[in-house]
Design a protein around this nucleic acid. Structure first.
Lengths: 139, 139
DNA sequence: CTACTATTGCAAAATATTTGCAATAGCGGT
DNA sequence: ACCGCTATTGCAAATATTTTGCAATAGTAG
C-alpha cells in the first residue's frame, strides 16, 4: 500500500528517475529527522558524495518530494507534505532548538489573505522564532 | 522629528557606527524599493564595493535596521519594521511579481501559536506563493 | 583644523555550489 | 540470470559566493 517509501518509489518511477542507494538513504535521513536539515548538515549524514547530495536535493525538489524551508540563517530541506503533514517550525533564539507547529486556522487565514490580495494560493512558508521555556528560566 | 532617515542616523549613532555615503545609499535603495532585494540585486544598485554591501547588510542587520526575508530561492533584505510597517509578501509563481500582505489577524494568530508551543515569540517570517490575476487569465 | 578610529576598497583566502565526463549501476526486456 | 540502455554517481575542476587582512580614507567629536 501507501507507505511513504512506496509513494516515493512510485514517484521516482513516474518521473523516469531511478531509485539509487543514495536517494534511498537521503530519503530515509529526511524521513527520520524531526526537523529540516541544511545541505551542510545533510552531507555528512547521507552516505554519498556531496555533489550527489546537491544534485539529489535539487532533483527531488523539482519533482516535489523535497521542500525548501527557511530555517534560521540557512535554507533547509525536508520531505514535502506528500510524506509529512503540512506544518511549520519555531526555533529558539537561545538554544536554536526547533519545534513543529501545526495550526489549521493559521493555514486557512494565510490562504484567505492570499485570495484577498488577488492570488490563487499555491503555497507558503512560515518560520517562527521565540525563546523556549528552558532558555527563559536560564536567562 | 522622526523621519525614517533621522531614525536611521540616530540608530547608527547610538551604536557607535558612522553615517557613510555607502550606508546612506544602501538605506535609501532599500527605503525606495517596493520589495526586498537580494545581495546580488543590491550590489549593482548600491554604489559601493560589493564587500561593503556584504558588510553593511550584516552590520545593519545586527543593529536591527535591516531584516532578512526568504523570498523565493534566495534570502533577500528589506528595512525592518522600525522603518516599514510589518508586512509579508506574496510572489506570483507565473510572473514572480511581488505584492505586500498586511493582515493583523494573521499576526495575532502566529504569535498565539508560538505561545501555545511554549515559546515567547520574538518574530516570524511568512512568505506566500500564488498565481496572480494576470497570470490566471493568460494561462 | 586635528586626532582618533570606524569604514572602505582591494587583493586574496576561504566556502559553497555547479559542471563535464568517464565509470558505474538501476532497470526493463529477454 | 544476463544484456543493453541510459540515469546517476564520483571525481576533478570550474564558478560563484562570502569572508578576511590590511593599508588608505573619511566621519566625527572636540
Amino acid at each position: 500500500m501507501g507507505s511513504a517509501f512506496t509513494i516515493f518509489k512510485r514517484h521516482l518511477h513516474s518521473n523516469n528517475m531511478r531509485m539509487t542507494h543514495q536517494r534511498d538513504h537521503l530519503f530515509h535521513v529526511l524521513l527520520k529527522s524531526s526537523h529540516p536539515l541544511s545541505i551542510e548538515q545533510l552531507i555528512p549524514l547521507v552516505d554519498s558524495h556531496f555533489v550527489s547530495v546537491y544534485r539529489n536535493v535539487q532533483e527531488l525538489r523539482k519533482v516535489g518530494v523535497i521542500k525548501q524551508v527557511p530555517l534560521g540563517l540557512k535554507y533547509s530541506y525536508e520531505l514535502s507534505d506528500m510524506f509529512k503533514p503540512h506544518h511549520h517550525h519555531i526555533s529558539c533564539d537561545g538554544c536554536s532548538a526547533v519545534s513543529g507547529i501545526d495550526d489549521e486556522e493559521i493555514e486557512r487565514l494565510i490562504d484567505s489573505a492570499a485570495v484577498r490580495a488577488g492570488y490563487r494560493p499555491t503555497g507558503h512558508s512560515l518560520e517562527m522564532r521565540g525563546i523556549c521555556r528552558n532558555c527563559r528560566v536560564t536567562d
